[in-house]
Write a protein that binds this DNA or RNA. Structure first.
Lengths: 111, 111
DNA sequence: GCATACTGTTACGCTAGCGAAATTATTGGC
DNA sequence: GCCAATAATTTCGCTAGCGTAACAGTATGC
């Protein structure tokens, strides 16, 4: 892959997201969502904050927003009730499937 | 490219951007920047607003922000002084070169 | 049982983004 | 010359994000 193609790919994916009616997720929100879906559970606020090198309220707020969109679910850890476990949802899976399709599609187009 | 790899690629690129000290550009800002650099000039506020399907103040504000970061430059069109022509900068080129390297790098890693 | 440590959330003051509407500057029709 | 059209910006009220600091709930050591 060459630089021009990489940037063109990136541009088209970003543009598709901007044009999409779904309110844009921020870079941080997207990163959190992908981490929850791609890396093995359990996922906690503290763990995500450490991985992204941001403060815990950033994670709490992102979970509030994405929770309202039903992309993510929160649940108390019954083993240690201080923890909150972050879980996947059907809607979140669908959202990421569509994102994957978009990437693959644009990757093919720029070939 | 399969779905899992596409998402992993996307996650790693997003994470790198989040971890980077440079203040994150929003999806819209990134799209504007890429469009300016990848598509043939001239670029105007109106043209970009139409392409992204957003209002003109969104473009004005994005140019303010990215102008302050010296990623982009504004110049009056001397032919029709109502227009503003948006131009590339050295710093913007460097920024996108680094982005391209990152994409290529992560694409290689996920292979 | 009580102090301490730890987890996630809330409160606070602030900044940046948003769309709609008003405003300024410029052009072109007539 | 003047009026309507056009391009970009500014203003308005609003929402959502940010980090710091304070807070509430839970677990653990002694």
């Amino acid at each position: 892959m060459k630089a021009g193609r990489a940037l063109k790919l990136w541009q088209e994916i970003c543009l598709s997201q901007v044009l999409d009616e779904m309110p844009d997720l921020s870079l941080r929100q997207t990163t959190i969502l992908l981490t929850i879906y791609l890396e093995p559970p359990p996922h906690t606020v503290r763990g995500l904050a450490a991985k992204l090198n941001v403060t815990k309220p950033v994670i709490t707020r992102a979970l509030d927003t994405m929770g309202a969109l039903e992309l993510v679910n929160r649940r108390r850890d019954e083993n240690d009730r201080r923890n909150v476990l972050i879980q996947r949802t059907v809607r979140g899976s669908v959202y990421l499937e569509k994102l994957a399709d978009l990437i693959i599609d644009k990757y093919g187009e720029t070939a």
